[in-house]
Computed example of a mutant assay.
Amino acid sequence: MKLEEQNSFVMAAHHDLNKVQHLLQHQPELIHARASWNETPLGAAAHVGNKDIMQYLIEHGARPDICAWAALGELEAVQSTVQKHPECVRARGAHGLSVVFHAIMGGNFEVLQWLIQNGAPVNEPEGTLTPLHVAVVKGDRAMVEYLLQHGADRRTRDREGKTPLERAQLIGSKLVDLLR
């Protein structure tokens, strides 16, 4: 398996189910590919919240981790993982993105609540994609309210130097009032 084939497969796993199906049909070993930047196909699909591709990859042998389970909304799998390995509430997936990030990207409020209630951090360092920034961009009012109620810092700036409020204003979000 060539590195360029692995890179192409992982890139497709973000958004292109047809290409993933086609490539995997011809090269089943791609299920275990790692891109040159160390991302797996399942990690790619998980961090963008692409449930169709995640399910397809799992059905074809990809092994989910807690970040994939969080993105899929599989609360029981998340709970079981944390029960066996409590440190997993601080797990990181592709690109170092938190398990909380993955729950938000998958739109899984129940998983988000459970993770935070069990010690997952609601804040990230300055200059990263914080859970609050992600919930704002996704336009999920319930998640934004929950994060704020649980200590999310509305002053933290993302990679582009924007606070959650500035990000909401930039995208024309209806969440601006909540963030003021």
Rank of each mutant, 00 (worst) to 15 (best):
H22S: 10
L24N: 01
L30A: 03
I31S: 09
H32C: 08
R34A: 12
R34D: 03
E39F: 04
E39G: 04
P41H: 00
G43Q: 11
A45H: 02
H47N: 11
V48F: 00
K51P: 01
D52M: 03
Y56G: 05
I58W: 03
E59F: 05
R63Q: 15
A71M: 05
G73D: 12
A77L: 14
V78H: 03
V78F: 06
S80Q: 15
P86Y: 00
V89E: 06
V89Q: 12
R90S: 14
R92F: 09
V99I: 15
A103Y: 01
I104V: 14
G107C: 09
E110P: 01
L112S: 01
Q113C: 15
L115C: 03
L115K: 09
I116K: 01
G119N: 14
E124K: 00
E126T: 07
G127L: 14
G127P: 02
L129H: 09
H133V: 01
A135Q: 09
V137M: 08
G139V: 08
R141F: 12
M143H: 03
M143Q: 14
L147H: 04
L148V: 07
H150L: 07
G151A: 05
G151T: 11
G151N: 08
A152G: 10
D153E: 12
R155K: 13
R159H: 11
E160T: 05
R167H: 02
